[in-house]
Nucleic acid binder design. Structure first.
Length: 304
DNA sequence: GACGCAGAGGATCATAACTT
DNA sequence: AAGTTATGATCCTCTGCGTC
């Protein structure tokens, strides 16, 4: 029983494009007779002539049925191209490298979960994670040393594109046994009575915190100043001091041993969490997926 | 089952031969 | 000289047959 095969369709398309069976045979490196037969089988199968042959040197012309079949062939060609490129992209996602920049804030709670989920979905990917202050991350993004960076309040730069942005509330991180832990919300002045763990100038939040206290006319008692956001938090968790930190991007469920207490104070400046990429550069397939995943995850956390 | 070869059948092109 | 016809070369497709 005759069949519409990929071979017969290919021959047919080549005949149409070459203008004759003979020319197609030369292009395909097969005998013209083979092509003639295949097209004959096609016509048998479809029950209609596809070419107006005019034997001799007359130019081959498509019949109406031939036109229809040719449209189908072109459509299939396009589909195959599309699938091919999707498969290529898929291969690209099976291995690859993602270069992520992140401020220290997210190192403990956000990044590990994020990487774990992404790694489960796309095993075989390797990561380079640069932990640095926003200014440094922006620099690296601008030099295309990173695919994407999670930053706070990035300074405007022509070379940097902001692909996602949201405000994170500033909270006070206190140990569970700390007196402030009992309050639902608190004011900046409530902190004045306690020692503070504060960031140094390498952390962008420092300027904002200084400004907040200045405007509130409060002289914070700085028990500890550090360039490590993690240390700031860890110290606050011990109860030795309290720290002004960003709320977690997700649920504000309290962690064992400490609490995030929201500040209700008009002078408080909230930080803008911003995802940055290199302007005008197309990321690798896997990096593009990673960036999209980041955006989605942060967006989901927004509504959570 | 698809292919190539060789030959048949058919049409065009260039040109020679012929007619007007 | 210009138009018409005859003819051979060339090109093209189709088909029968044997091969892989």
């Amino acid at each position: 029983m005759p069949m519409i095969t990929a071979v017969s369709l290919r021959y047919f398309a080549e005949v149409v494009s070459a203008g004759s069976i003979r020319a197609a045979a030369e292009r395909l490196f097969v005998a013209a007779s083979a092509i003639s037969r295949q097209i004959g089988l096609l016509e048998d199968e479809l029950g209609a002539p596809l070419l107006e042959r005019g034997p001799g040197r007359t130019v081959l012309r498509l019949t109406a049925a031939g036109e229809l079949l040719m449209r189908h062939v072109r459509h299939v060609d396009h589909e195959v191209d599309r699938v091919r490129s999707e498969i290529e992209a898929l291969k690209g996602l099976r291995k690859g490298h993602v270069r992520l920049g992140v401020v220290e804030t997210f190192v403990r709670e956000v990044v590990p979960d994020l990487l774990q989920r992404f790694n489960a979905r796309y095993p075989g990917i390797t990561y380079q994670v640069e932990v640095a202050p926003t200014t440094r991350l922006i620099e690296l993004i601008g030099q295309d040393e990173l695919d994407v960076a999670i930053t706070f309040n990035p300074p405007p730069s022509l070379r940097v594109k902001h692909v996602y942005e949201r405000t994170l509330e500033t909270c006070v991180l206190v140990a569970h046994h700390h007196p402030l832990a009992r309050l639902e919300t608190l004011k900046l002045s409530d902190c004045a009575a306690y020692g503070l763990a504060m960031p140094d100038e390498t952390i962008s939040a420092k300027r904002d915190q200084d400004e907040m206290f200045a405007r509130a006319r409060i002289e914070p008692r700085k028990v500890l100043v550090t360039n490590s956001y993690e240390l700031m938090r860890s110290v606050a968790e011990t109860g030795m001091a309290v720290a002004l930190v960003n709320a977690r991007p997700g649920d504000s469920a309290d962690m064992p041993g400490f609490r995030y207490v929201p500040i209700r104070d008009s002078r408080v400046k909230h930080q803008r969490l911003t995802l940055c990429t290199c302007e005008g550069r197309t990321p690798s397939p896997i990096a593009a997926v990673f960036i999209e995943t980041l955006k989605q995850e942060f967006t989901q956390l927004e509504t959570a």
